[in-house]
Each structure stands twice: as C-alpha cells, then as structure tokens.
Design a protein around this nucleic acid. Structure first.
Length: 279
DNA sequence: AGACGTACCTGACCGC
DNA sequence: TGCGGTCAGGTACGTC
C-alpha cells in the first residue's frame, strides 16, 4: 500500500523506538520476500546499533554502526509493528511475520507482509546512493530538486501519459497510484494527457499540487499516528479521505462542479478523475 | 532508448 | 456457507 507519506509515517513512528538501540537478535522466517535476503542478513544485523532511521522515496533506510544501511521497501502490504515488553500483540497474522528484530530496549520490531512484494537489502553506507534500488531515483517531491523546470525537462518529448510519467520513480520518487490521481485532480489535468503536451504554466501548477498533496498527507499521517500507535503497534496504514481516489461515480467535490468521478484503466491500474474539471 | 505488458503473492470482497 | 472471479496503494524484468 504505502506511498511516500505512509512510509514517512512509519519512519516517524519507528524512529523513537529504534534509534540509538542495538539489535540484540535478528531473525527471518523465510529466505526471501520479493527477493532473497542478502547473504548472512541476520548475522550482519545482530550486534549493530541503529544510528538513524531515514527515508528516501518509499524506502526506509536504517543507518547501522557497522557502516552498512538496511534498506527496506514495504511493497503493497508490508507493515512494521512495535511490540513493547508488556504491551498488546500486533493485530497482524503471525504467519506473515517475516522479520523480527529484538532491540536492547526490550522492544521487538516485526516486519509483516502477506503479499511479500516488499524487500530488504544491506548496502555499504558510504555508497548508499549507488545501491541498485536507490541509484536511479528522481528527486523527492518535497525537496529542492523537484521543480516545474525539472518536470519540463523530463516530460519533453514524452508520449507517455502524465499519469504513467508521475508514477515513474526516475522522474519523481515516492508517488504511487493514489497520490498521482489526487495531484492530477487538484491540478486539473487529465491523467491520459501525454506528458509532453502539458505547457509550462500547468507544469508549475502540477508541481505545487504534488507538493501540497504529499505535504498534507504526511501531516495527516503524523496526526493519526498519535491516535492509533498507542493502542496497536502496527504502523503503515492510516485513514485519509481522498478527493478522487476510490470515488468512482461519486460527485466531484468542487462545489461549482456537477460532474461525477470517472474510473479508467491505464497500464492495468485504476485512474480516477473528474471529466468536468480535468482537461 | 522508450513504452508496454507481465510476473510476483495473498487477502478482501462481490455475486451466485 | 462456499466457491470462483476480480481487484488491490509496489517494482523488476522481458519484449517489442
């Protein structure tokens, strides 16, 4: 499920529990998720101290005292849970608890992922950005590298739809199906529009809308975290109202618009948009 | 090189 | 209640 805002929410929830702690014990319950765990995965984690929990795009980055970084991607259904020594057990199916880290503060971090589209890797921290999963990522939507100028450069000559282009992690990193739909709705751009056909002023608007949509979602995640992390240690999902995503044939939320939300399929995935206000 | 389609998995949900 | 079909927010890889 998780796109950038959800991963950021997981990071926010996990970091106070994990940063500064030593991994006393690491266990995996199967040899692979989407990909095989790297060689000697558990041995390389055991005894290391977690210096920092960071994020790049949809990847969690655990900087370790061993000069390696644990890279974790949640795929579609990955969750991290925090199990406190005397607290409740996470309400996930233990059959899909694939990674368990026991920390020096007696908390356990559990990675649960029914679909196993997630994956983990260990890479030298010094060459983190050369790692095969991170090397080709485009700019962070909230960072300085993302601008309408950058989009113009990347969209130039692109016959691909703007929907597909925004999902391309080399162009902008961290967006997924939901937030691309939301950003295009807010910007008033149809998802089918060929990327190269969007003029500079609309690209400027799109840039702002992407930033706003992601920024608001991160904020919403941070606020929901407080409520439910207390009762249940599972991190990764939060309730959020979307303007178009999942609202097929419901009314467009713009007060001056009488349109209904449409759903189309682009490259095998649903796109939601309002035909009356997106052109 | 760029644009597609396909594969990888399980679970939830819907209609019969 | 049970069954089959469909769908799901991810990325990598093969093919044209």
């Amino acid at each position: 499920m998780p796109e950038l805002p959800e991963v950021e929410t997981v990071r926010t929830g996990l970091s106070p529990v994990i940063e500064g702690e030593t991994i006393i014990d690491a266990n995996i319950n199967r040899p692979n998720l989407r990909f095989a765990f790297p060689p000697r995965f558990c041995e390389r984690l055991t005894g290391s101290r977690v210096i920092k929990l960071g994020r790049r795009a949809k990847y969690l980055l655990m900087t370790l005292s061993t000069d390696e970084t644990l890279i974790a991607h949640l795929g579609m259904s990955g969750r991290f849970s925090i199990v406190t020594p005397d607290g409740p057990q996470p309400n996930t199916n233990p059959a899909h608890d694939h990674v368990v880290l026991r920390l020096s503060n007696d908390h356990c971090i559990i990675y649960n992922d029914p679909r196993r589209f997630g994956f983990m890797d260990l890479t030298p921290s010094a060459t983190l950005n050369e790692n095969r999963f991170l090397a080709d990522l485009g700019p962070e939507p909230m960072g300085n590298g993302f601008s309408s100028k950058w989009l113009a450069e990347k969209f130039a000559g692109k016959t691909q739809s703007v929907k597909a282009a925004l999902l391309d992690q080399r162009i902008i990193a961290g967006l997924g199906n939901i937030y691309v739909c939301e950003a295009l709705y807010r910007a008033g751009i149809r998802p089918q529009t060929p990327a190269k056909e969007i003029d500079p002023s609309r690209l400027e608007r799109l840039t702002i809308c992407v930033r706003d949509v992601i920024g608001e979602a991160i904020k919403a995640g941070g606020s929901t975290l407080r409520d439910f992390a207390a009762s249940d240690g599972a991190l990764g999902y939060f309730q959020h109202r979307f303007s178009v995503y999942g609202r097929e044939s419901e009314p467009c939320l713009r007060s001056e618009c009488a349109g209904k939300v449409s759903r189309i399929v682009q490259s095998g995935r649903s796109s939601f948009y309002c035909p009356d206000c997106q052109h």
